[in-house]
């Protein structure tokens, strides 16, 4: 019984570890609210789209398309393409959560977006003793913290709207928040090699449609990391 209950301490730790990244979620939520208001969405619609989709970049992209009188299916496909990375996040979290009650996994999956995913993907390999339910407890803490702040920020953005200046390089915030997730976790050469190869591949493949570029580039980067790790361990065993 004990093993299937979430750990309040790890839930709190997940929420606490999320705090430095709020600098990115708050302006991004405000932008979503402001764009939704400018597109003519009311406050209920603005918040409800975050409730049903909970993925800011896809909400922005699909509403922009819907505004232009495009067919509804085009807007849905464009939004889904932006979210294709969640397939990789799902594959990445599933082995760590496997064996925990499926209801907990299904609840956590609802909040599987960049920041909670990234925090857990770098934490789990360093805490191999944790049980699936303990890992989920941490994830749910970070997911709940980001989701709550996102809703408050988007309601604020809807209310304040176009009065917010947008010409101060606000689009650097999302890349910076990603860097803050993975840079402190870079320890070994294979990880650096995977990072460099994936970044280079993403720049070369940025013309690929449907958001496939980053996914293919990540696959190439993972292969490069495994190759580099094999090479290093081969050297050690020969010496």
């Amino acid at each position: 019984m004990r093993a299937s209950r979430i750990s309040p301490a790890l839930f709190r730790l997940g929420a606490f570890d999320s705090l430095p990244l709020m600098f990115a979620i708050i302006p991004f939520g405000i932008i979503w609210g402001a764009v939704a208001a400018a597109a003519g969405l009311n406050l209920l619609q603005t918040v409800m789209m975050s409730v049903t989709v909970l993925a800011g970049a896809s909400q922005l992209a699909s509403v922009e398309i819907l505004k232009s009188d495009a067919p509804i299916l085009v807007a849905i496909i464009a939004g889904a393409a932006v979210n294709l990375r969640f397939l990789l996040y799902s594959a990445s979290m599933a082995p760590s959560w496997r064996g925990a009650p499926f209801g907990l996994q299904a609840t956590a999956a609802y909040m599987l977006f960049d920041q909670p995913y990234g925090l857990c993907a770098v934490r789990y390999p360093r805490q191999p003793q944790e049980t699936p339910v303990e890992r989920l407890s941490y994830f749910l803490g970070t997911g709940a913290a980001f989701t709550l702040v996102w809703h408050v920020a988007s309601a604020l953005g809807w209310a304040v709207g176009a009065r917010i200046p947008m010409d101060w390089g606000v689009d650097f915030i999302v890349p910076l928040s990603f860097l803050a997730i993975f840079a402190p976790a870079l320890r070994d050469k294979p990880s650096w090699f995977a990072l460099i190869v994936a970044s280079g591949a993403a720049l070369l493949l940025r013309g690929l449609p449907y958001g496939l570029g980053p996914l293919v580039a990540a696959g190439v980067g993972v292969a490069a990391g495994i190759w580099s790790e094999n090479r290093l361990s081969g050297k050690e065993s020969r010496s």
Binding site: R85, L88, Y89, A91, S92, P95, D114, Y117, G118, A121, V122, P125, V174, P175, F178, L179, I181, F182, A185, L186, P190, S191, W192, A194, L195, V197, A198, S199, G200, A201, A202, L203, R206, G213, P214, L215, A217, A218, G219, V220, G221, V222, G225, I226
Partner: peptide, 16 residues
């Protein structure tokens, strides 16, 4: 393989 996921998918999104 998944150990490398955060060091590849996040940079692949942010580099462009």
């Amino acid at each position: 393989a998944l150990r490398f996921a955060p060091f590849t998918i996040l940079p692949a999104i942010l580099a462009p």
